[in-house]
Simulated assay, not measured.
Amino acid sequence: MKIIKSLLFLSTLVLFTACKQEKKASPKSNTNTSVTYAKGFDIQEFDTYKKLIINTPYPNAEEALEYIIIPKENSVPDSLKTFKIIRTPIEKVVVTSTTHIPMLELLDEEDALVGFPNLKYISSSKTRDRIDQNLITELGNEESINTEILLDVAPELLIGFSMSNNNKMFNTIEKAGIPVVLNGDWLEETPLGRAEWIKFFAVFFEKEKEADSIFTTIETDYKAAVTIATKATTKPTILSGVLYKDVWNLPAGESFVAKFLKDANTNYLWANTKGKGSLSLSFESVYDKGQHAELWLAPGHYSSLEQLEKADEHYVKFDAFKNHKIFSFTQKKGATGGALYYELAPVQPHIVLKDIIKITHADLLPNYEPVYLQKLN
């Protein structure tokens, strides 16, 4: 999975915290930027600035990271100078995951993107056009951003993500005068929680109202799809995942993928398991529970039944294989070969849900054509 692979190249930022003598901030104002579904961040609004709180900047984080977001024309109060300060609106930004690209595009801020590590991974046609015009700079490989090139690009902000709290690269970038903010959208537990991170991006461009409107549309469409799914008279049994070496990886019962399957009104066979990520199981245990599953969703990177059979002859024993009921999210590719699902789907949970409903309850969406979920032949 590209989003997971790309996560391996960054780690985190150690943030200064406010001193205990900080004077009380002005009262929060009543705005529409409240965070509803996302657990990983929050935005607190005051009269002359905002505080961005990243509750889960990386897995198992014990402390939140806090940033002060303040307009360029405003002075910074002495009581806030121990925080990391981000001046807005941002005009030049570097992001580090392909999942960040659609967020910028939805806010009409793709022109602010001036650099990215491994440009070949970007699939969005709008941003690829800017790459072809040499408007976005290649910043190096996934594990180490070229700091010299980054300094030449001179972004006002770098949005990164991390697997831990130990990263020399981000420290170096910050010492060079480029603020780094960590994004933890990939750690969200629900589809709408992931999509709501558009509000995180909006705060840097002073486009909170636009983000609220965009997210409200996503939320409304998602809830409408959930309502449609409740009309189903059957719940098909679902198998997911695939073997990697000797381990079968599939979504845990508290993961956002399991949430999709629940909202689609299906019977995901591992829905009652604990965990918010993946389960690592033996083939035998998966076969014992899933051999008669009616549908098999997301079989890794495989694009045909023939590929599956060549990879492991045991796959043919599953009813879903015998009945040609295996569906993949990764068949639709961008211009450079990347799976569009991994880049675009995080901000399109309503579309992903409708794809699943179409496959599992075809009669409920008779005129709908799946965008990502395609049958393996």
Score class of each variant (00 low, 15 high):
80 L>N: 02
60 N>G: 00
49 Y>K: 15
90 I>W: 04
30 N>I: 13
22 E>A: 13
61 A>T: 04
30 N>V: 14
26 S>Q: 08
90 I>P: 02
92 K>D: 00
87 R>E: 14
41 F>G: 00
79 S>P: 03
54 I>W: 00
72 K>F: 07
62 E>P: 00
39 K>R: 08
64 A>N: 05
86 I>A: 04
92 K>A: 05
76 V>H: 03
64 A>V: 02
88 T>N: 03
38 A>S: 10
62 E>Y: 04
29 S>C: 15
74 N>R: 04
79 S>N: 12
38 A>N: 02
30 N>T: 11
23 K>Q: 11
74 N>Q: 07
73 E>G: 02
28 K>M: 13
52 L>C: 11
82 T>C: 13
74 N>V: 01
49 Y>I: 09
52 L>T: 10
50 K>V: 07
62 E>L: 14
36 T>C: 06
88 T>K: 05
87 R>K: 15
91 E>T: 14
59 P>D: 01
58 Y>P: 00
85 I>W: 12
33 T>F: 15
78 D>S: 13
24 K>S: 12
73 E>M: 05
40 G>Q: 08
76 V>T: 13
59 P>H: 04
26 S>L: 12
83 F>G: 02
52 L>I: 09
92 K>S: 07
74 N>E: 07
49 Y>G: 09
77 P>V: 14
82 T>A: 11
88 T>R: 05
21 Q>L: 11
64 A>Q: 10
